[in-house]
Every structure is written in C-alpha cells, then in structure tokens.
C-alpha cells in the first residue's frame, strides 16, 4: 500500500482541486482530507457519511467559582496568559493549552480539567471511494493530533478493504497539521503556482519533506500565468533533484467545475484536466 500526500506550502495553489481529480483517476484507494480546519474536499466529492464521531483530545481548565479564593497563584503560573482575575479566576479557554499546571498547584483545588471536545470526524462514501475527513471546531488547537488520528483511521480502513493507495489532501503551511500529515507517507506531491510567493513557499515545503527524508514531486499549476517563473521553479527543482511531473495550464473550467461541485477531470474539454491525467499517469508508476 502506498501513501501520497498533496501539499503546497502556500494556500490556494490548487491542492484540493487536484486531489478531487486524482480521486477520480486512481483506483482502489482511500481518500483523506487532512486540512481539518478548512476542509474543502467534501465540496467536490459529495460524501455520504457512513459514521460521524466526536474527536476529543487534551483537556481545558475550568474554575469551580465557589471554591476559588482569588489568590492568583494560577495567574502567575500560567505561561499562556489564559487566566485573569476578577474576584475569582477566569479562564480564556481559547488560550488554554491544557497543561494542567494551574489545577495541580491550586491550593483550593478549585480548578478542574475537562476533556476537550474539539471536532468531529467522519468516514464517508463517495462515488470515488471512501473518504476519511474531519472538522476541527473553529478556533481550536490540536489540529496535528486530529490529522494523525484520521490518518490512523484511514490506514485501518485501507487494511480492512485491501486498498492499494491512500491519497491525502494536506493543509497549507509547514506547521503541525502538515508535519502530522507527513508521518509514514511514501511521497509528497507539491502543487505550486508560478509566482514569487508560490516558489518561496514551495522551497520551504520541499525543505520540510527533505528534513523527514521523503521523496517529493512537484507540479506547477496555472503555469502559463508567468511562464518564466515556471521555468525558474523547474530549474530550482532540478538543482535539488526534485522531479517536476507536470504543468497544469490556467483554465477557467476548473472554477466552473468547482461551482458545479465536481472534479475537473470529469470535464472532457478542460485543458487542465488533460494535464492532470498526464500527471497521474506519471505519478502512479513511481
């Protein structure tokens, strides 16, 4: 079984549109949306939830007001500026990291730790195969843990069903959800766009993949918006020994398909779709 994660560094370069299309093209796979705080893959794949489950992780501190003497010990100990005092201690739960230090040292035992319900996760059926996805509640932390969790679910499902491939839509950036999505993958496909920003962010994502000794491939989306930059990116990839699998042209049909809620490869006329088919032909044999 192979695991491929689609990343980009910079947001909005076309990860989800590409994964939606690869979902149509690849056979016998499990799909995973690891962009758990702004998940969009479901908008293309029309999933029917088979199961919905709560994701609980970590704890949040809570003050039992009638036990609190207002001594302020917790305020001084908290490294996250999550506690303030107005007669009794008040906890800003969005700042609370759940370290439990306040509860441990409270002389009145007035702070309790409650398990944190921070999102939902789903196993769904789509026309293109099972999709494991999640929604972290707005403003929550622990996105890395949720990513690790749904990836584990996907792996179990893949073993049960004998899938050959796990195809993962990653988050933008290079931080905790991205690092979590890299665990145990076989390769990274980085989607970039021919701009200074796209290139800058691609370099950081390729550095990250290299840091974890992962093999990367690149594709350049909307390459014809700035062909010289596409060339610069290709040269820079060649220099670091990363193969550029393909270029996808700017194509308004991509947006039209997104509005219809279908992957772009479903459109026979789309030049972008033709390029994506070619990229998949190449990638599947790696």
């Amino acid at each position: 079984m192979k695991e491929i994660v689609i990343l980009s560094g910079k947001g909005g370069t076309g990860k989800t549109s590409l994964v939606g299309s690869l979902a149509c093209l690849a056979e016998n796979k499990i799909l995973v949306d690891c962009d758990v705080d702004a998940a969009d893959l479901h908008l293309l794949l029309d999933p029917q939830a088979r199961s919905q489950n709560e994701f609980r992780s970590g704890v949040k501190a809570k003050v039992v007001s009638d036990r609190c003497s207002g001594c302020g010990v917790c305020v001084d100990l908290c490294q996250f500026e999550a506690i303030s005092l107005s007669h009794v201690a008040q906890i800003n739960s969005l700042r609370c990291e759940g370290c439990g230090v306040c509860a441990h040292f409270c002389p009145e035992q007035a702070i309790i730790l409650e398990e944190n319900y921070c999102g939902n996760w789903f196993i769904s059926d789509t026309k293109y195969g099972p999709l494991v996805h999640a929604q972290l509640f707005a403003g929550e932390e622990n996105s890395g843990k949720l990513v690790s969790f749904i990836k584990r679910q996907a792996r179990e499902l893949a073993e049960e069903t004998g899938a050959d491939l796990i195809l993962i839509d990653g988050a933008p950036g290079i931080g905790c959800p991205v690092i979590a999505s890299l665990a145990s993958v076989d390769m990274v496909l980085a989607v970039t766009e021919p701009s200074q920003s796209g290139w800058h962010d691609l370099e950081r994502v390729l550095d990250l993949a290299a840091h974890f000794r992962l093999q990367s491939f690149v594709c350049i989306n909307k390459w014809d918006l700035y062909p010289e930059m596409a060339q610069t990116i290709e040269a820079s990839c060649a220099q670091r020994g990363v193969e550029v699998l393909g270029r996808i042209p700017f194509d308004p049909i991509v947006v039209a398909c997104q509005i219809q809620g279908i992957p772009v490869v479903c459109n026979e006329q789309s030049p972008a779709a033709a390029a994506i088919r070619q990229i998949w032909q190449d990638l599947r044999t790696r």
Binding site: G11, G12, D35, D37, A38, D40, L43, L94, L136, A138, G139, E140, E141, S143, A171, P172, G173, G175, P177, V255, Q258, I259, G261
Partner: peptide, 25 residues
C-alpha cells in the same frame, strides 16, 4: 490561513478584520 489557533492568535487584538475571499464554493 485556516481557522485554528494561529488564525485566532493573529486576529485576537484586531479592532477590525478584513476577510479576503473568492466567489467559489
């Protein structure tokens, strides 16, 4: 980008937030 902890931290002291979006799903 996103809506989790880095986003919240970035906007937490703002007096006004401009959200930039695109007219797609």
């Amino acid at each position: 980008p996103g809506t989790s902890c880095p986003f919240v931290e970035a906007i937490s002291d703002a007096d006004y937030v401009i959200l930039v979006t695109e007219p797609t799903p």
